[in-house]
């Protein structure tokens, strides 16, 4: 009898702590690094002191760097996030088009060779690579004591999560392999849920973390883009070549002066004669 009681106690303790362990891994990290993608196996960057040549209006590609785990951020969600960035920048006159490059077109550790393949495939000159680093910490709070009642696992918010997300955009000129500029976006999310809903709630929090990080990235990227434009004007950070892809019918200031002067002469002649 005593053995049975002891066995039941040990079993119940194992089950309850086991549940907590299975459902709440204390810490999980999802990471995709632009350095790991472009310079796999500790490959050293070859430094070529060249000034990148940018053909305006730019044809831009945007993609998430392939991460270690495929399931960390679903492709549909990746596309939604990339489209958010795309719609924020697509109305710029110096941008001809922005192509969303699905992660399936990029190889983990593919390097610049893979980036060039994708750029050729999507006919883009500049690629924005989004890398990310997301950490989730999970704990049980004091209310988790109610999980012992079984019902508490359904009703009491005894499990809490803390999700920190960094999304970093690096803008590369594919031809020269040069980093033009970069911008970060961050988010911090905290929340709690009952044990049985913890998986779903924390998954949603991770996705929301990416969304908020991308939302904070967009103004930063805009600011860095403006700073880069200034660097191009003042420090010749890149050579700008205007193509006729997007053109405007315009006579220019000199033409306007010409029209103005001849019109003034015509008025003068009419008044004089």
């Amino acid at each position: 009898m005593r053995h049975r009681t002891l066995a039941a106690l040990v079993a119940s303790a194992l089950i309850s702590t086991g549940c907590a362990t299975w459902f709440n891994p204390p810490e999980s990290t999802h990471r995709a690094s632009v350095v790991d993608y472009l310079y796999p196996q500790n490959e050293r960057p070859a430094l070529k002191p060249t000034v990148p040549e940018l053909h305006l209006p730019l044809r831009v590609g945007i993609a998430f760097v392939p991460g270690d785990l495929r399931g960390d951020l679903p492709e549909v969600e990746r596309n939604n996030l990339l489209n958010r960035v795309k719609s924020a920048f697509s109305n710029r006159p110096y941008i001809d088009s922005i192509q969303v490059i699905p992660t399936t077109y990029l190889r983990s550790g593919g390097g610049f060779g893979n980036l060039e393949q994708a750029a050729r495939m999507f006919n883009v000159d500049v690629v924005v690579l989004l890398s990310y680093d997301q950490m989730q910490f999970s704990d049980n709070n004091r209310l988790s004591v109610f999980y012992w009642t079984i019902v508490g696992g359904y009703l009491v918010n005894g499990s809490q999560y803390d999700v920190s997300t960094l999304v970093d955009a690096s803008v590369f000129d594919v031809a020269s392999r040069q980093l033009l500029f970069r911008a970060p976006g961050t988010s911090q999310l905290k929340g709690s849920s009952p044990l049985v809903k913890f998986g779903e709630a924390s998954r949603e929090a991770r996705t929301e973390g990416y969304r908020q990080a991308v939302d904070s990235l967009i103004p930063q990227l805009d600011a860095q883009l403006e700073a880069f434009r200034q660097r191009v004007k003042e420090q010749n950070a890149a050579r700008i070549i205007h193509t006729s892809r997007s053109s405007g019918g315009d006579s220019g200031l000199a033409g306007l002066g010409l029209f103005g002067v001849t019109a003034a002469v015509a008025i003068y002649r009419r008044r004089a004669g």
């Binding site: 305006l56 209006p57 730019l58 710029r92 006159p93 110096y94 941008i95 434009r229 205007h242 193509t243 006729s244 892809r245 997007s246 053109s247 405007g248 019918g249 315009d250 006579s251 220019g252 200031l253 306007l256």
Partner: peptide
């Protein structure tokens, strides 16, 4: 291939 000050950046004179 001169540029026009009246056109936005990235737009070439046609």
């Amino acid at each position: 291939g001169s540029q026009s000050a009246l056109l936005p950046e990235g737009i070439a004179v046609a």
